[in-house]
């Protein structure tokens, strides 16, 4: 699936949740289910310091696509990280660099991608794009 197809399927998944609490319970569940990040990658240079929650992001290239691992100490942030990884991981650097993120707005979670939230997610998305641009230049 392309990045946009994945975004659309997430929007569809979320369309069944009318109540904010159901939506957040789902996000929290995603956070709990996100595979633990390899401790080797949970290092200072992979740390994106938000004001409140900390986010770690590691990227590597595998058979022509970029793979991401990430973690956070806050579970809601971690749940949204799970969604971002689902969207971005396993795609070519070119597709990642050229695709805009719109699903968070559509599912009513755009506020978590606001710079004023200081949860590290804005920087994480920026960092994912930067990796993609860097890999693009390399190849």
């Amino acid at each position: 699936m392309s990045i946009n197809e994945i975004q659309d399927s997430i929007i569809e998944d979320f369309s069944m949740y009318e109540d904010w609490a159901d939506k957040y319970e789902f996000i929290i569940e995603l956070g709990k289910e996100l595979p633990a990040m390899n401790e080797l990658y949970k290092i200072e240079e992979n740390l994106i310091k938000g004001c409140q929650s900390r986010v770690w992001l590691h990227a590597h290239e595998e058979e022509g696509v970029l793979k991401f691992q990430a973690d956070s100490d806050a579970i809601i942030t971690k749940g949204i990280i799970g969604l971002l990884i689902k969207v971005f991981s396993g795609h070519t650097a070119q597709e990642i660099a050229n695709t805009d993120i719109y699903f968070l707005k559509e599912i009513g979670l755009q506020e978590h991608l606001s710079p004023t939230r200081a949860n590290g997610l804005v920087s994480m998305v920026k960092q994912i794009k930067n990796y993609a641009i860097a890999f693009n230049l390399k190849s």
């Binding site: 904010w20 609490a21 957040y24 929290i28 929650s53 100490d73 806050a74 579970i75 809601i76 942030t77």
Partner: peptide, 13 residues
């Protein structure tokens, strides 16, 4: 076991 950020987000709602 809960990060203050998460508690703050839920209380906000």
């Amino acid at each position: 076991g809960a990060h203050p950020y998460d508690v703050g987000v839920i209380l906000d709602h």
